[in-house]
Nucleic acid binder design. Structure first.
Lengths: 175, 175
DNA sequence: AATTGACTAGTCAGTTTTGACTATTCCAAT
DNA sequence: ATTGGAATAGTCAAAACTGACTAGTCAATT
């Protein structure tokens, strides 16, 4: 339900059509979801079915395809209030598919593993730098950026630990 | 491709059937993926199509349904080597759908937000305790547990920061 | 000896998600 | 003025995923 919470939260601020919603999310909330354009449209149709949103105007400017402008309904507002509280109170467990490789580290030579993880560290550092230089956001959106920053630093620290461990082992092997 | 890397990595150690694979993953690698049983079967069929694995015996013990035992092929081994290296070298960006609510914090009263986030903190703490008391795992699997531990601590520290921030603001409002 | 509930093993219909596509407008450079 | 690329707005078939189900075995309980 996180995705619908997201859409409802944005529609509460102002009526929008699918493209606008997707655009805003991609630009400002990419740390929270990787919602694709077509998924956004799908969810909007779904929520319309549930009566959470209503399609208001379908003006066709020029020869463009008509834009469906979504408005949140009272039922939608109620769902929003509920979903928001649930979301804030719960600790959602995160999974890290990117780390599966770590489980198979012993399948490759120590020195190659170290080289590969150093590449990973560089890429991670690049991400951290990008977030560090990101322009500040308005209001509570800033929390998302802060969280990402915090998370990336934590990941870097952990990777450093793993690398140290492996480097120690490499030394041990050679002597 | 992380899921297929995972399956290949396990099939390399020993031949298995779908149920076994899913069981092992659920028990030991839940921090890396939430692969459902049916998804596992789907991926295995797919990988069979690509020639990465081969179905070997289909013994039917008693009146049980026949078990399809999967074996990794040479093509599968090649894919594994490639996927493992890619996985280790890349820094996979993680998204946190559980945090969308934070973006809408300003939609509810400060004191209620604080109460809700304290609930979240308690739940998070419970998760951290569970990982802390988890029995140690063999070999590189331990890295996954360590990472989860590290991550949960980082999340707790961040949440503490947010709570402090909000509590400060609450004080400011009252005076 | 029959019932219950857990464990093993897998299937399948229906839902959700995706990538690739269409089609128009705007704008900048050739 | 026109060509080409970005931005706008959305559709659709195909791929991926899920929950709910079947069905047998085993062990304990009643």
């Amino acid at each position: 339900m996180e995705r619908e919470l997201l859409l409802l939260g944005l529609l509460r601020r102002s009526d929008m059509h699918g493209y606008q919603l997707h655009e805003f999310i991609e630009r400002n909330m990419s740390t929270c979801t990787d919602l694709k354009k077509s998924a956004a449209y799908y969810l909007l149709e779904q929520m319309e079915g549930r009566g959470w949103v209503r399609v208001s105007g379908e003006l066709a400017e020029g020869k463009r395809p008509p834009r469906r402008i979504y408005t949140i309904t009272e039922a939608g507002e109620a769902a929003y209030q509920q979903l928001l509280r649930e979301n804030l109170a719960q600790a959602h467990t995160s999974v890290f598919p990117g780390n599966v490789g770590l489980a198979f580290l012993s399948d490759i030579a120590l020195d190659e593993a170290i080289a590969l993880l150093r590449q990973r560290r560089a890429a991670l550092q690049a991400q951290a730098d990008a977030v560090a230089h990101a322009p500040p956001h308005a209001g509570s959106l800033q929390y998302l950026i802060d969280h990402q920053r915090h998370h990336l630093h934590s990941e870097l620290a952990w990777l450093e630990q793993v690398l140290n461990d492996l480097e120690q082992r490499l030394k041990g092997d050679l002597t």
